[in-house]
Design a protein around this nucleic acid. Structure first.
Lengths: 220, 220
DNA sequence: GTCTATACAGGGATAGAC
DNA sequence: GTCTATCCCTGTATAGAC
């Protein structure tokens, strides 16, 4: 009766005794290296060998720990999604206007874009085309995050007269799409996101907030 | 003195006599096949051999006509951008409200998404990460299209009190990003775009149009 | 648990026949 | 202008030493 930790992304063959030494640490290293490879080389250049180069470890470790490159990419998506959810849940819980939502988005942008975590996600999403395993894995990994954003939008809609009119899921998809699309275009022209884009989005959000307030001042 | 047609994406070695027979037709076939490969296999699976399989021609033709796979992808982006610009310029020229702009976007969506042309673009954009040649080529190819959208947004802004406040380029980027992001997510969950998303966007646009009108009814 | 070595498939690209 | 054949490199994945 082996005592495996059995993390959900554990693809290791059955073991017989105790031994996990730096295993979890190594797994983290591999995920981190994959993240870097996705950011720097894109999905097309993210091979097992490229990932190993980025992390300075042996290529075979990927298959031992994650079964395949795709398995690793799914693990990357899941860990990143969990991390992001935990990190931004508190801020999202306090959002009560579109302007504030954009402010959180901007914070996320400032903190995560330069680290390349969003770029990595867009690359994995692009890679999901033509791979059922990746598609399913990524979709699962994103669920907690979209649920979080969806709840926030629910709360925002509840403060306006449009709660019954505008489907929350569509708005969530739209927000997520806007964010990912910005990253996709930023890859093309890096200075795009380094400037006024989010400032403009904040202006637009404040504008709409103000219009909403003017249109329904007695709703609160 | 050779009589080459010298299309901008012509990578063929110098020829000595007359002969262009079905060359242009072949080039079109190759571009079309690349489009299909991008849509069906994604950028990671779009190899010269995969493209040749999709089109039923020989792999070596790609290198003869476009110099490299990347060269072909740039040609794909450029031709698609030109085609889209020509196709939607008339409709965009008549747009005079946000609602109408979204309506054109929806038409573009309905006509192009199922053909996979937008999906192909997102894949090429993803592939541009880590490839300077692709980045530059794609950026160039998109310029006429973004100029078209930018002009439309200029016109929309001119009809509101916010022309001086909101930078047109940021709004253009935002619109493009939203569109591409939708495609990226649609790859993950195909039924996302097959339904209410654009209807909701039209609702939101109409809403904002109404609010703008109410806020500044005497501007026109 | 990590490394080296290796099998084997597939990809980019070119040479040369037609 | 198109095809066949080929070179060489890179990729995935596994076996087995340590």
């Amino acid at each position: 009766m082996p005592d495996r930790p059995t993390a959900p992304d554990d693809h290791r063959p059955t073991r017989t005794g105790r031994s996990k030494a730096g295993a979890e640490h190594t797994r983290a290293r591999i995920v981190e290296a994959a993240l870097q490879a996705l950011r720097d080389e894109g999905i097309a250049g993210t091979s097992a060998r490229a990932i190993a180069r980025h992390g300075g470890f042996n290529q075979a470790l990927i298959f031992y720990h994650f079964g395949s490159v795709e398995g690793l990419l799914v693990a990357v998506a899941r860990r990143e999604s969990e991390r992001r959810s935990a990190l931004y849940a508190p801020a999202l819980a306090e959002v009560s206007s579109l302007t504030e939502l954009v402010a959180v988005a901007r914070r996320l942008h400032d903190e995560e874009f330069q680290a390349g975590t969003v770029a990595a996600l867009t690359q994995v999403l692009a890679g999901a085309v033509g791979s059922d395993e990746l598609s399913r894995g990524i979709a699962d990994s994103l669920r907690p995050w979209t649920a979080l954003v969806g709840d926030t939008i629910d709360r925002l809609l509840a403060g306006t007269p449009f709660g019954g009119v505008l489907p929350r899921d569509d708005l969530t998809s739209g927000v997520a799409a806007l964010f990912l699309g910005i990253e996709l275009l930023t890859g093309l022209d890096p200075q795009m996101a380094d400037g006024s884009l989010f400032a403009t989005m904040e202006s637009v959000a404040t504008l709409i907030d103000g219009l909403l307030l003017a249109a329904a001042p007695t709703t609160g």
